[in-house]
Design a protein around this nucleic acid. Structure first.
Lengths: 110, 110
DNA sequence: GCTCATATATAAGAATCTTATATGTAAGAG
DNA sequence: CTCTTACATATAAGATTCTTATATATGAGC
């Protein structure tokens, strides 16, 4: 799995990306991240929950309490319009970072 | 410039990549990172110096005090064999992270 | 003499991850 | 019917790595 040192800030992009596809609650968000990245990216729930509160506070996601057919209460998050807009500069920033690191390697190997 | 939130851990890769090309001291390392990434990635010296000490402690770089022709003393760092070996898994880890984030987007847009 | 570029160093604080712990319901095994 | 596991959320304490602010000192140009 990818180490803690370099994956900082990825949780936000991961959560917004997954919620773009469909609304989801915290517990399954963690599983989706792991599944969709084939285990490369993994977050504990203790990291995810506080992160969801922060992102909701910024208005990018919105959570509603649901009581499923099985009687379990859970908080279902969905991407807000502001969150959808936020994904654009956020992805741009990440692709800029990738490009920057690629340039550092290219110069070193020139 | 790329925000502080997402660039964590990049300093290490950036410094090792640049030292792979040629030995350098801290002050100019900061400038090289900024130049070679066209200003996208930028670290203050207050972030770089403690980082250099950490990385040296791990044995990946080695610094020697030099007194240049102008009489200024400065610490010149070069990549150790262990540092060169470390670059392989480190780059692999980063490319895994890129691939993981790419997969999250692909699923969302499917 | 003053200011700017060079050069290193440390302290205090913010953000985001870690592990550990807590609570509670539902379902399946024995 | 009790025990364990899966589901589901929550918080606390600690580590790491970045930020801004501050300090020190030399050399060059005006």
């Amino acid at each position: 799995m990818i180490g803690a040192g370099i994956k900082r800030g990825t949780a936000e992009l991961a959560v917004l990306s997954i919620l773009e596809a469909s609304p989801l609650h915290g517990y399954e968000l963690a599983q989706r991240i792991e599944q969709q990245t084939k285990g490369a990216l993994r977050f504990t729930l203790a990291a995810l929950y506080p992160m969801l509160y922060r992102v909701e506070k910024r208005g990018w996601i919105r959570g509603v309490w649901e009581t499923g057919s099985n009687g379990r209460r859970r908080r279902c998050y969905r991407l807000t319009p502001a969150g959808k807009r936020k994904l654009v500069p956020l992805r741009h920033e990440w692709s800029q970072l990738f490009e920057a690191l690629r340039q550092l390697k290219r110069v070193a190997n020139a």
